[in-house]
Design a protein around this nucleic acid. Structure first.
Lengths: 397, 397
DNA sequence: TTTAGTTTGTTTAGATTGAATACAAACAAG
DNA sequence: CTTGTTTGTATTCAATCTAAACAAACTAAA
């Protein structure tokens, strides 16, 4: 008997089913009525009824009574996204490890942060993650609510090969070639997903923040370096190996400044948080403090520097506008207040360097979501997987 | 009665059906056996039999007898892509108008080229297109073969809004804001599709040329300016309004040279075909002649210029590698022989400016397809639409 | 030549999904 | 209390694809 060849394509039965479609809508809206589902999906009432029942039985949603009032006709019954299905987000950083639990309806059920005095190695970090998650799982199991954990989403400040789950390079953590996904999967016996921090920030802003409703989004996040996330036509730009959207390394000038990767004239080399702190006489301050100082204590020097950085950022933005023709541009991290320092100047720079057609209808926003943005993005990694194949996740006894 | 709200999503019945899947495979392979379809799609033999029968009845494919030999087992029956279903490609350029007819199995059935002594306006061009197509259609109707024309694909050297079919700006043709799709649809009563030339070149190279099999491809085409096409994860990068992939306008230097759109330091301003011609003492020569001159008559001046241009092209390529992490990079037009002038130098520049991870496994190729590449790309616009909904196209009597 | 084994085509009988229809239920406005 | 509107539910029907059984067409080996 010849081994059956693996099909190149997915056939109907395993494709995007209506069950996924409805579950995705419930997750996105947190709460909705059956009739809303009908009109949004175009499915018939009988089909929606059957699908919702299935989802309730699987534990992804809960039936609420009829609640709508003040309208002609029989009130439609409500469906809520589950409060019990959870994703756990894990965020290792230079000086802390943050763990949160996010429910399928978007609420943050749990949050803890462990500070480190000194940077720890990759293997030590995994040990710590396992320990914290194990004890969190134990807590949740004994809780009154019947929680069910669908998986883990790891937020990594560095380059990730999304298909293998290997951290290729995380300069600030000083990790490299570290197979974090497999290590965690092995020790936690749960699905584990790994992604870059900027890409998760973008995902979250698109789902619930500044870029809500947009399908073509470019996101830039300024921390020590500049990370990027790009979604085109609603799907993430990953590239061949998953290293796409390294926007900070884009070269825009012939200058000789080096960025964190030793490359000349790049965005990251020209727009530096350190330089902004230095010109204001600060060091290692929080984003909040830096924002206040930058916007309120304007000196000729700080203005000149901010202008120079805004020009570089504007040229980069114009380049990205020419390349991607995005609907929305989101600036996060310190780029948020660099932008606010002189929005008008920034837009003038863009206008000078982009072709007019791509600027029509393009909007620039700063991030809206705050501290929970990355955790929500990480939870989406887990939830989207569950949404794609809800039948796989049976309700726990 | 309330008007039924338009569904946001497509439900199963209108989604990607197995019929489309099989038709797409037949189109791609030109000829294949039923059993190959089974193993590639994972569909059962009975389903494949039914689907193929449907496609043959619709006229998209023709049954061929069992032909396979020298293997154990009953020979599988063959299916050929139709030789009678046609797409017509239309290519207006500064000094000519080229019309070709491409069959569903990829063969070029007809080709004609009309030269112009002087540039003609957009409306005159449409008049000419209509006239040529009408007479071509009349010819095909009276032919022995029972041809059926599915639609028209227009190749435009300029920016296209793909959703509205309006030519936003075609600098060489001197067209702007020209609703070419609607004008042609109205006068030809056939489906008309319009796309940018570089994007079609990329599509063709991916389907049948240098980038065959790749899903993440960046393509750059050098003519007078530099056009680009990008496909990520198998789908074209279009952006919000369809103006994405304007790669020639990417800024990579702080120099003051202006490109065709009056923007400083862009790729298009630094890598110019005119300059190559000038340094070799040529003017308005064909790509073939320029290639021979450049590669064979190397002078210190031409070498210095080619090196400068290769450096700019390399920096741009590195930028695009960082942004897209493509699997394959395709260089077409005069970039083809600029690359061949000194491949090693080009690769050294890339290595210097790109982060190492994105270069792993990335391949640089020159275009493989020749003169018919754009026509094949344009025919794909038409055929992909037919493949998506084959039942819509009933067989002509 | 015969026989066994392999692969494919064909027929038939389900399984699954979702639409359409009809009817009942729950509401607002007269 | 009636009418009109909207939603939930049950039943029927159509479309799509699988699975299983069997027949057909081939190779290879006895």
């Amino acid at each position: 008997m010849t081994p059956k060849a693996t099909p190149m394509f997915e056939t109907r039965s395993s494709g995007q089913s209506s069950l996924s479609l409805v579950l995705g809508l419930i997750h996105e809206h947190r709460a909705m009525t059956r009739s809303e589902i009908c009109s949004l999906t175009g499915l018939s009432r009988s089909t929606v009824a059957k699908l919702v029942t299935t989802l309730v039985n699987l534990g992804f949603a809960s039936d609420t009574g009829a609640e709508q009032i003040d309208r002609v006709g029989r009130p439609s019954m409500g469906v809520d996204a589950s409060k019990e299905m959870l994703a756990i987000s894990v965020h290792p950083e230079v000086d802390y490890l943050e763990i949160k639990a996010v429910a399928f309806n978007g609420t943050i059920v749990h949050s803890e942060k462990h500070l480190y005095d000194e940077p720890i190695g990759a293997y030590q970090a995994v040990d710590d993650m396992v320990q914290v998650i194990d004890s969190l799982v134990a807590d949740l199991e004994t809780s009154d609510t019947n929680y069910r954990i669908l998986g883990i989403g790891v937020i990594v400040p560095g380059q990730i090969n999304s298909s293998t789950g290997i951290v290729r390079q995380a300069p600030h953590l000083q990790w490299s070639e570290f197979p974090i996904r497999d290590l965690l999967t092995e020790r936690l016996s749960m699905p584990v997903f790994v992604a870059n921090d900027a890409s998760l920030g973008c995902k979250a802003e698109m789902a619930y923040g500044a870029a809500k409703g947009a399908t073509d989004v470019v996101y830039m996040h300024g921390t020590s370096g500049i990370g990027g996330g790009v979604f085109m036509n609603g799907t993430e730009l990953k590239g061949f190996r998953g290293y796409a959207a390294e926007l900070g390394h884009m070269r825009i000038s012939s200058g000789k400044e080096l960025d964190y990767s030793g490359i000349q004239g790049t965005l990251e080399a020209l727009v530096r948080r350190d330089d902004l702190e230095a010109v204001l006489g600060l060091k290692n301050v929080s984003d909040e403090d830096l924002e206040i100082a930058l916007l309120n204590n304007r000196t000729p020097e700080s203005t000149a520097l901010a202008r120079r950085q805004l020009e570089a950022l504007g040229i980069a933005t114009a380049n990205l506008a020419n390349i991607f023709n995005p609907e929305v541009f989101v600036l996060a991290g310190f780029l948020r207040f660099l932008y606010r320092f002189d929005q008008n100047y920034f837009h003038r720079v863009i206008k000078k360097h982009a072709i007019p057609a791509v600027l029509e209808g393009m909007q620039v926003f700063v991030n809206e979501l705050g501290t929970n943005s990355l955790a929500i993005g990480a939870s989406e990694l887990v939830f989207q997987e569950a949404i794609a194949d809800p039948a796989k996740y049976v309700k726990r006894k």
